[in-house]
């Protein structure tokens, strides 16, 4: 457990764990620094802080791509990544300065459930 239940980020992580107890890893991440404000992992091999750092670059590159394509009036709602056995989801908050990173086992959770859980908690991290 790497979160304080007093902070909004920690509360969001706690709520997501309650909704998806079998998740692999979850983190609330600051886009500017790539640092996790709160994180939790159920797998010894997945370090959510490392995942946060790398996935921040994914978000930033997508934001760069959007500005290069002059997609004004658009913002990233979420990014869904399908692996062989895992689903990785990135859900940005309204301001686009924080995101929730979630990794789940594809056999235990489907994309719709994971996405819906993140949607309900995205406003907690504003």
């Amino acid at each position: 457990m790497a979160y304080s239940t007093n902070s909004p980020a920690g509360k969001a992580v706690e709520a997501i764990i309650t909704d998806l107890p079998s998740l692999v890893a979850v983190a609330v991440v600051d886009v500017n620094s790539g640092m996790a404000l709160a994180s939790h992992s159920n797998s010894p091999t997945v370090n959510p802080e490392t995942a946060a750092a790398y996935n921040t670059e994914v978000v930033k590159q997508k934001q760069k791509a959007m500005s290069a394509l002059k997609l004004t009036g658009e913002r990233i709602e979420d990014i869904l990544i399908t692996l062989t056995n895992q689903l990785h989801l990135i859900k940005l908050n309204e301001a686009g300065n924080k995101f929730i990173y979630l990794a789940v086992n594809a056999r235990e959770t489907n994309l719709a459930i994971a996405r819906e859980v993140l949607r309900t908690h995205a406003s907690d991290i504003n």
Partner: peptide, 9 residues
């Protein structure tokens, strides 16, 4: 080019 957490990691 990068972020603080990534460079640190």
């Amino acid at each position: 080019d990068t972020n603080l957490a990534l460079a640190r990691e």
